[in-house]
């Protein structure tokens, strides 16, 4: 068996492959994702068609992430919101009718942008508490599957047998749960999770 060093990325610590910069990944998770709720508000505030929000958010993330892979920005909030703002302006330009009232409001959230955030440990504790709350709010079957898989550590087959459903249904509940947990954790304002949307 010949050695093949070019395929040896055993020690890189990340399973996202050698092509991906681990520093950008960590930075994105640690610094950018916690801004999602505010970023969503900003986008909703400045874009009429709310069914576009998910796509807009994704585009902001892609731009921010690709920039970070070249160089990690010093100031996270200003960078993220400036990116969002420029993207919205670009889109408005390409829009058949430019929604003027929205443009004037684009910088309204610069206040949120400058506000000091809670310190990292507070965020971490708060997020874990919210994660717990989020699991409790999943639809019952989905929640049971998530708890058994992620917390009890049962296999897909064991869960299927215990609940009398097929392994594919278990997987479907899990993927729903994975999406819903991230949406609740990042997508909702942290202050009061019960606040009506």
């Amino acid at each position: 068996m010949a050695e093949n060093p070019s395929h040896d990325h055993e020690s890189d610590g990340s399973h996202l492959g050698a092509a991906v910069a681990p520093a950008a990944n960590a930075w994105f998770v640690r610094e950018v994702l916690p801004l999602e709720a505010v970023l969503r508000q900003y986008l909703q505030h400045n874009w009429r068609d709310h069914s576009d929000i998910e796509d807009l958010l994704q585009d902001v993330y892609v731009r921010v992430y690709e920039a970070a892979r070249r160089q990690i920005p010093d100031m996270v909030k200003p960078f993220v919101f400036t990116t969002a703002r420029n993207m919205l302006i670009n889109r408005m330009r390409n829009h058949p009718v430019v929604p003027i009232e929205a443009v004037t409001d684009l910088d309204a959230l610069s206040i949120a942008m400058d506000a000091p955030g809670p310190d990292r440990n507070t965020i971490a504790r708060e997020e874990l508490r919210r994660l717990q709350a989020a699991i409790d709010r999943l639809p019952p079957r989905c929640r049971d599957v998530v708890v058994m898989r992620r917390i009890e550590g049962l296999s897909r087959g064991e869960i299927a047998a215990r609940m009398g459903i097929t392994p594919d249904t278990v997987s479907a509940h899990l993927t729903d749960g994975i999406c819903a947990l991230s949406d609740m954790l990042y997508g909702e304002p942290a202050a009061d999770p019960r606040r009506p949307a």
């Binding site: 993330y61 874990l128 994660l131 917390i151 991230s182």
Partner: peptide, 22 residues
């Protein structure tokens, strides 16, 4: 695509954390 990577990172961050509850 970076869109794939950021989507994956975002879900993994929460899902990975759920393991801490264990």
């Amino acid at each position: 695509s970076s869109a794939h990577t950021v989507a994956y990172l975002r879900l993994e961050a929460t899902w990975g954390r759920a393991a801490r509850l264990a």
